[in-house]
Structure formats: C-alpha cells, structure tokens
C-alpha cells in the first residue's frame, strides 16, 4: 500500500469494456434521475413532443384504416347497368339473358325493381315511408362482371360503350371509378402526412435542442467543474445525450398512447356507423411495427437534437 502513493502515475482506473459499460450504466440512470428532479419541466417537454408526434402518427393510422375500408370492398370491377323506367320485367330478364351470351361477360345478375325496393326497405330504415309510395321509384339493375381477360381499363371502357348503345340503358356505372378516386385521395393524404412528419420531426428536433440548451445553461458550473477534473468531451456530452434519449422514449410512448386513446374514443361510434352500413368493418389500432417506428423515430430525434447542441456548446468552450 505504501508504494501506491509513490506510484500515483500508474494507479489509474480500470480501462476497457467494464469501465465503459459502467460509465454508461451510471449515466443512463443518473440522467433519468436528473430529469425526474424537475418533473414539471420534464412533463412539459414530453407533452410537447408527444402531442407533436401524435398528429402525424394518428393521421397515418387514419389513412391505414381508410385503405382497409377500400380494400374490404370487393374489387371485382362490377359494372352496374341501370335500365330505363319503362322497361318491363320481361324485357329486363330478356336483356340479362342476352348479356349472358356476350363472350366478354362472365357473370350477370339481375336485381329487378321489386327486389331492389325490398332491399332498400330493409337497410334504409325508410320502410314506412316507402309504403306510402304508389309507384316503385327504383329502376331495374343488371350487375355485370366482365371475364378475367376483359378487366383492363380499356376493355371495361369498351364494354361500357357497348352497353350504352343499348336503347333500354339509362346509365352505366363502373363501380371501381369511385374506388380509384378514393385511392388517389388517400395517396395525396399519405404524401401530405409524409410532409407533415418531416416538418413536425424538425419541430421535435428543435424542441429537444432548445430544452437541452437550457439544461446546458443550468448546469454550466457542473460542466466547468467536470472539465477541470479531467472529463472528456464524451463524458460531458453523455448525460445530455441520454436526456435526449429519455425525452425521445417518453415522448414517443406518449404519442403512441395519445393515438391509441383517440382510436379507442372513435372506435365505438365507428362500429355503430359500420353496422348501419351492414358492414363488419373493425377499426384497427396502431400495429406493433408502427409503434416501434415512432419510438425509434422519437429517440433518434431526441439523441440527434441533444448531440448537435452539446457538441456546439463544447466546441465553443474549448476555443
């Protein structure tokens, strides 16, 4: 032991992985403790990050849900052929039989006026009102499914032209048109959300940077003293990086919770609406992968934001 004092230069700390892991673990929990000492500030920052990230995260979930609605709808490229009012039951049946002979058509289904009225009465809830009508206001409808080799847009268009030539035809409607429009709209929405993700991501980066900047100011003495006792740049930077990490973790978790809570609130009314449409649509919550994505994204923003600010600060100190 006596030689230890003489040997001061060589009685250094343990080097290597153990020391490294030890320092990291220490800072990991110390930084959390440090944040917990100012719970109000911590909560405020996390609140801002969480709400900011919950916006794009929520929008993406909404888009996914709309997509699944449109995906649920049978993409069988049906063509609806509405017949003119004066067309009789017999004429409609005749026409539908003729269409069955058409080589471009694989399947034909006639929904006559009476059948349509019954269906409408059942699902619309206007049963009593419909009873007061003297005449059935609905036309005959023939649903046509083209054969598989006639599913291209051009083929369906030409089939539509052909059907419109028919003198009994009132209107030809291609069911997938509105679906395409919906999908196009959803694509626009998705692109918009990507831009929003980018902008709000930058916002979170700035929030974290600013918070860490204030923390650096508050802990200026500590940084000075730590430098004087021989702390490396990495050592001084570490607790702030971990602060950023924790902001990311808690901000990300809060964002996911907010989105999940919102979906839960919307879930009830949605399933009622879905039942009214006779649809079994179930709103979907955030999938595991997207939760993971938002967590990683938030952590990344927290770490990068603090890294930039602390590195800048330390570079200034060292000049």
């Amino acid at each position: 032991m006596a030689s230890r004092r003489q040997n001061t230069l060589h009685s250094g700390p343990p080097f290597g992985l153990t020391a490294y892991i030890h320092i990291h673990l220490h800072t990991f929990f110390a930084s959390l403790g440090c944040l917990a000492r100012t719970p109000f500030n911590f909560m405020m920052t996390i609140g801002v990050i969480g709400i900011t990230l919950s916006l794009p995260a929520g929008m993406l979930v909404a888009i996914d849900n709309f997509k699944s609605i449109s995906g649920n709808i049978d993409l069988n490229h049906n063509i609806s052929l509405y017949l003119k009012h004066h067309v009789t039951q017999e004429a409609a049946e005749h026409l539908s039989n003729t269409l069955k002979e058409n080589p471009k058509i694989s399947h034909v289904r006639l929904i006559d006026k009476q059948q349509a009225l019954e269906e409408f009465r059942e699902y619309s809830g206007f049963g009593a009102a419909l009873n007061t009508l003297e005449k059935n206001p609905l036309p005959h409808l023939i649903q046509i499914t083209p054969t598989d080799d006639n599913l291209s847009e051009e083929a369906i268009q030409s089939l539509r032209d052909e059907l419109e030539q028919n003198s009994e035809t009132q209107n030809v409607q291609i069911d997938m048109a509105w679906l395409k429009r919906l999908n196009a709209l959803l694509n626009i929405a998705e692109r918009t959300v990507s831009i929003i993700v980018l902008l709000l991501g930058i916002a979170v980066l700035l929030i974290v940077s600013n918070t860490i900047r204030l923390e650096l100011q508050n802990r200026r003495d500590e940084i000075d003293v730590t430098r004087l006792v021989g702390a490396t740049r990495a050592f001084i930077r570490r607790p702030f990086i971990y602060s950023g990490f924790w902001y990311g973790v808690f901000g990300g978790v809060l964002a996911c919770l907010l989105v999940t809570l919102s979906i839960w609130l919307i879930d009830g009314p949605t399933s009622i609406l879905s039942k009214l449409y006779g649809n079994s649509f179930q709103i979907s919550y955030m999938p595991f992968l997207s939760i993971l994505f938002w967590l990683v994204f938030a952590i990344l923003l927290g770490v990068v934001g603090s890294w930039v600010v602390v590195s800048r600060h330390l570079s200034r100190l060292e000049q």
Binding site: G12, P13, P14, F15, T18, A19, Y20, H22, I23, H26, D221, E222, D224, V225, T226, L228, V229, G230, A231, T232, F235
Partner: peptide
C-alpha cells in the same frame, strides 16, 4: 488536482458526490 479559492463545489450534490467526481470521470468502479 486543482483547488480554488471559491471551492467550485456543486451545491446540488452531497459531499460524497462532489468528492467522487474525478473518480467517476475516470471510470473507477463503485
């Protein structure tokens, strides 16, 4: 080892934490 007129202690930390700072910085074990 540096000693200052104004001590340069961290006032939000205990005596133990203040004194242990150089060792923590150097990565000593608990």
């Amino acid at each position: 080892g540096m000693i200052f007129q104004d001590h340069r202690l961290l006032h939000d930390r205990t005596v133990y934490d203040n004194v242990s700072l150089p060792l923590i910085v150097a990565g000593f074990r608990h």
